[in-house]
Design a protein around this nucleic acid. Structure first.
Lengths: 206, 206
DNA sequence: CAAAATTAAACAAATGTTTGATTAATTATT
DNA sequence: AATAATTAATCAAACATTTGTTTAATTTTG
């Protein structure tokens, strides 16, 4: 069982699904791009749906660990933890923007119900961790009284708003079509700066 | 030429595209749900792609007018204009959440290129209007120095983050699957309150 | 040699679209 | 006002592709 080849198929699938969506990508497209026989996808994964599931599993759970690491860091204050959350998410979504886009599609459309529920469940746990950081800040009177869930939604939503569409990115950056926002450090810094500013002004007392 | 029937087909298409996506909706599904013959879609619109274009045109441009109305209202201060922008968007996305979801899909996937560019262009104009409100607030020293585009992205992104997935909504509201967040007034108020809080704390001097 | 991997070909089902015939509605002509 | 002529609307059926999947034979590998 060649794990290399399975991974290669999954990685090619991520590229295509991110670009054209799940229904918009045929197994023949995938096989052609990955340079394998059409039958190999079903041979390795059983079906196109199961390939999708394998793809999600393949990449998931990273953020969860990262967030827990930040939340349990006793050397950090609550606002420092929020800063770390912001940086972690921006980095994650920038480097894994294709995968992230696929997850977002599935979240919106709710086709493969199992996968959809899985994503909601993962997201639910992440929300809880960030919520607890914010609530602790509020208890310590370091933070103002805010809506914890929606505060997290604002952070994630801002990143998604600019990152999920390349056209949107380039509109905000006044760049042309060839510019790749996902590897541009200036853009990354701009988002992080804005998110910290918004979070600080929302949360911190004066 | 029965405009009623064309509209009926478009409205049914909005429901199905929002639920299952463009590729996930077959003309047969659509014809069945709209209770018309399969051939009628091509008879009226020419093709599935052109139906999509007609659908976008059918609903677009409303937000643009609303924003311009707000921006040019001389009885409002800048922060009052921002509040009005927030309320307009929340109301719009709540009532037109299916259409909004379709637009979002097209923004992400960039399949029908013409439609995609059209949406970017529409969005670009809306961004400019809001940007100018913020910049005027900054010039008058009523607003702090912020990133105008990303401030707008945060507002829209927050709404999208919670509105584009029913599962996400219900997660945030601790409701069960039968709950319909798009018609719930408590939810709407919660989002508006949070967005105003975030915008005020970010923009207003102390 | 046996198991695993790979292949080209075929499968049935689903897709968007077109056809050609039929009915309904509109317009023109008497 | 009645009839004929013309256009528009509707339909079931068929069209050619494309889809995901399977088969059965072949090659590679351990």
């Amino acid at each position: 069982m060649s794990t290399d080849k399975k991974d290669h198929i999954i990685n090619t699938a991520i590229e295509l699904f991110a670009e054209n969506g799940f229904e918009g990508t045929s197994i023949r497209d995938l096989a052609a791009k990955a340079d394998v026989n059409i039958a190999m996808v079903n041979y390795y994964f059983g079906s196109k749906d199961k390939l999708f599931e394998a793809m999600v599993v393949h990449k998931a759970s990273y953020m969860r660990e990262k967030l827990e690491e930040i939340a349990s860091d006793k050397t950090k204050s609550e606002i420092e933890k929020m800063d770390a959350v912001i940086e972690a998410y921006v980095n994650r979504i920038l480097t894994q923007h294709q995968y992230h886009r696929i997850i977002h599609q599935e979240l919106m459309l709710k086709q493969r119900e199992d996968v959809h529920n899985n994503i909601i469940s993962l997201f639910s746990k992440n929300t809880l961790i960030v919520k607890q950081i914010i609530e602790q800040g509020m208890r310590k009177k370091a933070f103002k009284k805010v809506d914890p869930e929606l505060t997290f939604a604002s952070i994630l939503g801002t990143i998604n708003q600019v990152m999920l569409s390349k056209g949107m990115c380039n509109l905000l950056m006044n760049k042309d079509k060839n510019f790749n926002p996902y590897t541009d450090d200036t853009f990354k810094k701009r988002i992080i700066t804005h998110l910290k500013q918004i979070t600080h002004s929302l949360l911190l007392q004066h």
